[in-house]
Amino acid sequence: MRQIFLDTETTGLNAESGDRIIEIGCVEMLNRRLSGRNLHFYLNPERSSHEDAVKVHGLTDEFLADKPKFAEIVADFVEFIRGAELVIHNAAFDVGFLNNELGLLQQESIDQLCGEVIDTLRMAREMRPGKKNNLNALCAEFGVDNSGRQVHGALLDAGLLAEVYIRMTRGQDSLVIDEVEASTAEVALESVDLSAFTLPVIAADAAEVQAHAALIAELDQASGGKTVWKAAEPAVA
């Protein structure tokens, strides 16, 4: 399973009104382990950032002036994310901006490039209703060190999100049995001759039978005589 944890920084909040992406950060995870492959770009948006946006990410127009334009990095970006499952915090925001940039260049949209987009903000709201679910709050909740996050940064935030996601979904992969493993196990079972084994049958002694009967009676009394085995006893007899 290939997942890309992605974050962007932008000149403002509205791609439809002309705001653009100024930073993209991507962190790759393979089978729930960080691969060490990242993709990171600062971009020249060809417009000024809103003052409030600069307060959030700290990327000034002067800093971005000599950076590549999105058109210059789009091929590398598309190659990196193609076919992967994207994991994004507040996915609608980032995907909206990415689709705007891709559309300006007549490129495929995110849903055409990637198999699925997971929104960790939606996940967090379902897990923690009524609580703050921004990235800082989730880092605090799941014990992820975000002490280096003085301002928002796309690559830094993508890395933090990857750590948060692993903790949010801890144990989830253990519930899934791979089809190949299942079929292999099935073949292994079929190849064993069970007739070669003598399995001992240990009968309960009188004290154990009495203790079991007492427990069954207590359960029957607690349920008001509605226990399932009562209805099944005549059939068994």
Rank of each mutant, 00 (worst) to 15 (best):
R122P: 01
R122W: 08
A124F: 03
R125H: 07
R125M: 07
R125S: 06
M127Y: 12
P129A: 00
G130M: 04
K131W: 13
K131E: 15
K132I: 09
N133E: 04
N134Q: 03
N134I: 06
N134T: 09
L135D: 00
L135T: 07
L135P: 13
N136R: 15
A137R: 00
A137V: 11
L138R: 07
C139I: 11
C139F: 09
C139Y: 06
A140S: 12
E141L: 12
E141G: 02
F142Y: 15
V144F: 01
D145S: 01
S147L: 00
S147M: 00
G148L: 14
G148C: 03
R149L: 11
Q150Y: 14
Q150S: 15
Q150P: 01
A154T: 09
L155V: 03
L155M: 12
L156D: 03
L156H: 04
D157G: 07
D157M: 02
A158H: 07
A158C: 02
A158K: 09
A158R: 08
L160A: 08
L161N: 09
A162T: 08
E163L: 12
V164C: 08
Y165D: 11
Y165S: 10
Y165E: 04
Y165H: 15
Y165V: 02
M168P: 06
M168W: 08
M168N: 02
R170G: 03
R170M: 13
D173A: 13
D173Y: 05
D173R: 13
